[in-house]
């Protein structure tokens, strides 16, 4: 995004009708280079002062790159095949996922289960809190102003933009992840998946289903 576009976005920040899309503020090529220069300078100062050891940043990057959707999918698949685990997961998410060798760095994990009557979905209106230790980094749209602003006010319209129309009578629970908890949606196990093993089930589960903007489709 160029500087010119920045100005344009700002001037029209309340005019959401002009192209129907709330701009996502991202850096253009020059901005990315500037960001790289800034973070390199910061890192150099911190290493010089002995606050961070050389190589430590690289190692931390490897650590935060490791978690991803596969961890969330593993948790959900286990909950689908093991009712006792599911019960423990809903009672205390952090302890239950530790049984699978998954560590939650955030304070606590709340797992919210979808069923025939209830659909859950997750947002963070104040910043962009997200269960990074089990889903990795949040998608760009999750940190967008439009998602942060609208999810708590018109959840059904937001879900429709993601292509999800809930059946009649299904209530929506929106979770604003604003403080010390992080949230994972436990989607419903799809029809036709009865014969599948845990690994195959895990393969059906997407990030968006665990944020709650999608559901796991029926298995052909």
């Amino acid at each position: 995004m160029s500087d010119q576009e920045h100005t344009h976005d700002h001037a029209h920040s309340h005019d959401h009708a002009h192209d129907g899309h709330e701009p996502l503020v991202v850096e253009d090529e020059a901005g990315n280079i500037e960001g790289q220069i800034l973070v390199d300078a910061l890192q150099t100062l911190l290493v010089e002062r002995g606050l961070v050891f050389p190589g430590e940043v690289r190692r931390e990057i490897e650590r935060i790159e490791a978690p991803g959707v596969h961890l969330g999918a593993k948790i959900v698949a286990r909950a689908w095949v093991d009712d006792d685990f599911r019960t423990r997961l809903l009672a205390d998410g952090k302890s239950a996922v530790a049984e699978l060798g998954i560590g939650v760095g955030e304070a606590q994990l709340i797992v919210v289960a979808n069923d025939a009557d209830t659909h859950n979905f997750v947002c963070c209106t104040l910043c962009s809190c997200y269960p990074r230790s089990i889903l990795g980094q949040p998608p760009a749209w999750y940190i967008s102003k439009a998602y942060r602003a609208r999810a708590v006010r018109e959840p059904r319209a937001v879900l429709e933009e993601f292509g999800l129309v809930l059946p009649d009578g299904v209530r929506v629970l929106v979770h604003d992840s604003n403080a010390d908890m992080r949230y994972l949606v436990l989607p419903q196990r799809p029809k036709g998946s009865e014969g599948l093993g845990e690994d195959q089930l895990a393969g059906l589960i997407t990030r968006d289903c665990m944020i709650g903007v999608s559901v796991v489709g029926p298995v052909a």
Partner: peptide, 9 residues
């Protein structure tokens, strides 16, 4: 729906 709910800490 009247049953729709917002949950927050």
């Amino acid at each position: 729906l009247p049953a729709d709910m917002l949950c927050i800490e």
